[in-house]
Amino acid sequence: MGFEVIFKGKNFIRLLSGLCVALRISVISVAISIVLGIVVGMLMTLKKPVINAVTRVYLEIVRIMPQMVLLFIVFFGFTKMTGSNLSAELSSIIVFSFWGTAEMADLVRGCLISIPVIQYESSKALGLSRLQTYVYVIIPQIIRRLIPLSINLITRMIKTTSLIMMIGIVEVLKVGQQIIEANRKSAPKAAFGVFAVVFLLYFLACWPISCLSKYLEKKWEN
């Protein structure tokens, strides 16, 4: 079935290090997205017309533009416009952060407006300052809702990073192709085994995180 190729030489290690490239890009992009997303999300609740208009356009762009298209625009477009080369890895981090920030901002906004007004009012009635209200009352409630959702964003980010092979980054799919290519003669069925393993590797990377997210969501549901 072509599974034997995987354990030949350093092939399995190579596949894993390919996955690590994808994971590294995901983690960096998620970290940036969370920080920027919180800021943008809070800006969106301010009800300033200009900010609202800009963020709505931003969110709609992310909602309808495939990440793949954004990746092409940044990777090919930037090079063309400036004449300098933007590395594929940096391009993908920019694109995934651009996308992740929008997703995160929307989540943060949703959480913020879901806190009932009575929470603010009763804090005020107790004599808490605006800052104290946020620190002791609002933020703890938001974090509980936000954590499962942001963990969920990580799995989506990992899945999205599979796209980076399309702009030439050597990640797990690309390594898989190289292995198949190198063993074309000796193991003609390698494609099945290798891609099945890649499929499984992605599943093993995402599934535990999805489960954690679901678990936390259930646990913190009031």
């Binding site: 799995t155 899945k159 999205t160 891609f195 995402c206």
Partner: peptide, 12 residues
């Protein structure tokens, strides 16, 4: 299928 990318599914 929810925990794997479409690209990988298509390759397979």
């Amino acid at each position: 299928f929810r925990n794997t990318p479409l690209l990988v599914q298509l390759f397979f």
